[in-house]
Design a protein around this nucleic acid. Structure first.
Length: 709
DNA sequence: CCGTACAATGTTTTT
DNA sequence: CATTGTACGG
């Protein structure tokens, strides 16, 4: 026993070792990118077990379930013993688990239904209609705006009023209606056993706060708590930890303030500094040695973060002094960039590098569209992380709705979706049917509200539905019977692209095979959404290339990394340009992207990009590139066509980013919301206007309807 | 009140 | 570009 312990501890540096061996009391580890954070966590898991802590007393919270699974597996192999009784997962999955058990304390059954983002939006829309808010002459916020406002208010602990007035002033006049709608939303969820993502955190926290005995219970159940990626947790999650560790204080959190990239979800890099306030006597350990990247890559990364307005806590160093400089290039457009990347990837593969050791990273999922086309054309297998999830597609949601009503007959949101699939039943009729279902669950006597054919259709569905109650079959069996019913409807509705969509259904089927019970299957699907390309990797005999949003690439590393679409407006995204906090988050995002690379790094800024509606336009390289001293990278041109490229460079002047501005300083303009004003400044696609009623305001020409007077 | 055909609209990041 | 809203005929 001693021997094994010595063996895995001796690979650690002193700081890591201290983090592993400090097992009692609150501990904060500030761990830079590539500083062996995961190794430290894995060793600590193993060490705890080695010290005789029963593995079921350990709780490990990470940003994906996959990450938790991997760490637990690695700890197992370190110990050569199974430690899979460790509870591992995300905050949301933990809350889900706890609420299934303790939810009754606040009026929830153990079979409550989870709403994903789309479900929440649908519900908000439903309520919006029934409150008569949809047919106003003036525009009421749309469902996704409503969902965003609501979720922000929960996760950032800000009032709806505050959010609307600071970020959506155009809807301020509707504030009372919006608040009423949200009240209805909350009541509806409660009444129908529904919880959205935010409710998972909110309700579990509520129980912890209100029931001291629950805190005792869970404290005894999870005596050692570890939290990864703490910089991306929000106040709510911090509070949850505070209560869960109240009794024993054995809680270790690991994070890196310079890698905080989930501000939009209520996370704040400052949270990490709040931790010692939640837990007095916190011990702090810093990990600053980087084991991942070469010095040239790290030099670039350090400059990016040093240019930040915010002072971060550490500077990374490495012993891997040798290495190639990162490469910067400006292809003429995305097509040329894609060809370059595909060529380079094949070239590296020739040299023996596996496809799975290379990754292409980008700010937003759609930035890789052109590349995907090129890769497909060349037959280079890839998986894409980020972007559309399997269960976000309409046809999959249809199928899921069937499962939902089997599990929770009160899920009228799912009922609604199913009813609308039937020919002859529209929103009004569906509403009527649901009202009947509410009063007298599953009565078959539908008065004359339906046409004969519609009522037959409904009847045949209800007959089928009754066969599933009580449900006992395995999810895959239930699914195949649902498919029998649904397939004809599916054919009618999605006639256009039947083949494409049916593949998703097949994916869903093969996924279902892995589950024993329906609620497991559904929870899993919502808490760890499946990527749409993930199940498609059929009979590929080679581990595929990775395409990923930077957000989804968190915590991962590759030999070679390509970062594409490094142009103003895309990265940094134009959503963040007006807000310094958000711009800083974009910078951290770039930092995260760069530090994923071990040996080779390619930074790519196309000279022209295609914008919907505007065609091909010139693009400025990202400001994050411009501020890096050219000595830190090597700029190359494609096929020696330097002259061609620089001729474009000449034309690409400061203000030509997204087409030039039709306004000049001094112009008098009118804005639909803000009224009249005078143009103060024009730069690129941004314009500063001094409005009579509002004062100086920065606007985006691309999204503003300004009228010259 | 349903279904369809057409226009508008506004595009991050995720549990 | 694909989703979401609107207009209209059945």
């Amino acid at each position: 026993m001693r021997k094994v312990e010595a063996e895995f501890l001796k690979d650690l540096n002193p700081a890591q070792r201290e983090a592993v061996e400090t097992i009692y009391g609150p501990l904060l580890v500030i761990a830079g990118a590539g500083s062996g954070k995961t190794r430290t966590l894995v060793c600590r898991l193993a060490y705890l077990v080695e010290r005789g802590i029963p593995s079921e007393k350990i709780l490990l919270l990470t940003f994906t379930r996959r990450a938790a699974r991997e760490m637990i597996d690695r700890a197992s192999s370190l110990l050569q013993r199974d430690v899979n009784k460790i509870t591992g997962g995300t905050f949301h999955s933990l809350c889900n688990l706890m609420l299934r058990q303790y939810g009754s304390l606040i009026g929830y059954n153990s079979n409550f239904t989870l709403l994903d983002r789309g479900d929440s939006e649908d519900l908000l829309n439903l309520l919006k209609t029934s409150l008569g808010l949809s047919d106003r002459k003036k525009r009421f916020p749309k469902k996704d705006t409503l969902a965003t406002i609501y979720s922000k208010s929960i996760n950032q602990l800000r009032s709806v009023e505050e959010i609307v007035s600071s970020e959506y002033p155009q809807f301020l006049e509707y504030l009372p209606e919006i608040q009423r709608l949200f009240a209805e939303y909350v009541a509806y969820k409660r009444e129908h056993q529904l919880m959205d993502y935010d409710d998972l955190l909110l309700n579990w926290l509520k129980i912890l706060k209100e029931f001291p005995y629950v805190r005792k219970d869970v404290g005894a159940r999870f005596q050692f708590i570890m939290v990864d990626e703490y910089q991306d947790t929000n106040t709510l999650q911090g509070e949850i930890i505070k209560y869960m560790a109240e009794d024993h204080q054995n809680v270790m959190v690991v994070g890196d303030d310079s890698q905080s990239i989930y501000g939009f979800r209520g996370a704040n890099y400052r949270n990490i500094f709040e931790f010692p306030k939640l837990f007095p006597n916190t011990k702090i350990i810093k990990l600053e040695q980087n084991y991942r990247s070469t010095q040239p890559i790290l030099d670039l990364a350090n400059v990016i973060i040093a240019n930040s307005k915010i002072k971060y806590t550490k500077t990374l160093f490495t012993l891997k002094k040798e290495g190639e400089k990162p490469v910067f290039l400006r292809p003429k457009d995305e097509a040329e960039a894609s060809i370059f990347i595909a060529d380079k990837i094949l070239e590296l593969r020739e040299k023996g590098l596996k496809l799975s050791q290379m990754a292409v990273l980008f700010r937003s999922a759609f930035h890789s569209y052109e590349l995907e086309i090129e890769l497909t054309k060349r037959g280079i297998p890839f998986v894409k992380y980020g972007g559309l999830k399997l269960l976000e597609s309409a046809h999959v949601k249809d199928v899921i709705s069937f499962l939902k009503i089997i599990l929770n007959p009160k899920d009228f949101l799912a009922w609604n979706r199913i009813l609308l699939l039937m020919e002859g039943i529209g929103p009004r009729t569906a509403e009527k049917i649901i009202n009947l279902l509410k009063e007298e669950p599953l009565s078959f006597s539908f008065p004359r509200i339906l046409s004969l054919s519609a009522s037959r259709k409904l009847k045949s569905f209800l007959d089928l539905y009754m066969q599933f109650r009580p449900y006992s079959e395995r999810p895959s069996e239930i699914l195949s019977r649902i498919w029998e019913y649904y397939e004809p409807l599916f054919q009618r509705i999605y006639y256009e692209d039947y083949n494409r969509r049916v593949k998703d259904i097949e994916g869903l089927f093969s996924l279902a095979e892995r589950f024993e019970t329906l609620d497991e299957f559904l929870s899993e699907l919502l808490l760890e959404p499946i990527e749409i390309t993930d199940y498609e990797k059929e009979d590929i005999d080679e581990a595929p290339l990775i395409l990923s949003t930077i957000h989804s690439a968190k915590g991962l590393e590759w030999h070679t990394v390509f970062i594409i679409s490094l142009i103003e407006g895309r990265f940094p995204s134009f959503h963040s340009l007006e807000n310094e906090e958000e711009l800083e988050e974009e910078r951290r995002l770039f930092y995260v992207a760069v530090t994923r690379a071990r040996e080779k790094l390619y930074l790519i800024s196309p000279l022209m990009v295609y914008l919907p509606g505007e065609g091909k336009v010139f693009a400025k390289p990202s400001r994050f590139i411009k501020e890096i001293p050219p000595s830190l990278y090597r700029e190359i041109s494609i096929n020696g066509k330097k002259s061609f490229i620089s001729s474009f460079q000449e034309k690409s002047k400061e203000d030509t980013t997204y087409g030039s501005s039709p306004f000049k300083v001094g112009d008098l303009v009118r804005h639909p919301h803000f009224g009249e004003g005078e143009v103060l400044e024009v730069s690129g696609d941004k314009i500063k206007v001094n409005f009579v009623n509002k004062g100086p305001t920065l606007l985006h020409l691309k999204y503003t309807n300004l009228e010259r007077l």
